Amino acid sequence: MLVIVMAGRWHILAATLPEWLHARKQQLAAIGQWLGNVDAWLGEIIPRGWWNGPLAFLLMLLILVTVCGVPLLIAVGYTLLTKMAVMDWWRERTFGVHGVLWTLLILASLALADRLAMIPNSPMHWLTWWILLIAVAHPVYLLTVAPKVNRFMEKG
């Protein structure tokens, strides 16, 4: 089924993967450079004194926790909620149905991402489109489609 969806475009997608990885490397480097410049920024705000070092360290730590910790906390929470949903499906014996539906959704999003990347002057690569589509589709599936499927299976 995946071969039918991609229809011979695998070589193009595989050839552009290093370019996509290089772009993500540049984004991470920009974030690292921003974090490196925060110290200089704090040096301009905080007046010089004996407490400058510890205060700057605490402010830098607060910024780092906010920038890195909050997304990590959201990701861990979302992972735990997804695990609970999957365990419920397993217990209710609807996991197979959800597995098939989710696979179809992934394949449809892959085909859509491939088409979106072909838009002239598209700002994003196919893999970025695919990750974005999956990141949006998964919560929508968990919150809207999965309960309806479970209700349908309970009644039927």
Rank of each mutant, 00 (worst) to 15 (best):
A113N: 03
V3G: 06
G36K: 09
T94S: 14
L42H: 00
I74W: 06
M87V: 07
F152R: 10
V3D: 13
V67S: 04
R9N: 13
K148H: 07
P123L: 05
L142E: 10
M60G: 12
L105Y: 01
P120D: 10
I134W: 03
W90F: 06
V149M: 02
G8I: 01
W51P: 00
A40V: 07
I4V: 14
T128H: 08
L58G: 01
L107M: 14
L13M: 15
R93C: 05
P54L: 00
D88C: 05
A15W: 06
W102Q: 09
I46Y: 01
K155Y: 04
A30Y: 08
V65E: 06
T16E: 15
G49P: 02
V67P: 04
A40E: 12
I74Y: 05
T82V: 06
D88F: 04
P120Y: 03
V145F: 10
I46S: 00
P71T: 04
L42A: 01
P139R: 00
W126S: 07
A14F: 10
I131T: 08
H22D: 07
I12L: 13
R48H: 08
T94A: 07
M153Y: 03
K83R: 11
V86H: 05
L72P: 01
V136Y: 02
V140G: 06
V5F: 02
A29H: 09
V86K: 09
H11G: 08
R151P: 00
W130L: 15
A56R: 15
A113V: 02
A135L: 09
L133G: 01
M60C: 03
P139W: 01
L127N: 04
L35K: 10
L104K: 01
L35S: 08
L72E: 08
P18V: 04
I131C: 04
R24D: 10
V100S: 03
V38D: 05
Q33W: 10
K155I: 06
G32D: 05
A108F: 11
V38A: 11
D88E: 13
I45H: 01
L72N: 07
D88T: 10
W51M: 11
M124D: 08
Y78H: 11
L104I: 07
M1N: 11
I74L: 13
S122R: 03
P71H: 04
L104M: 13
G96I: 09
A7F: 05
P47T: 00
Q27H: 11
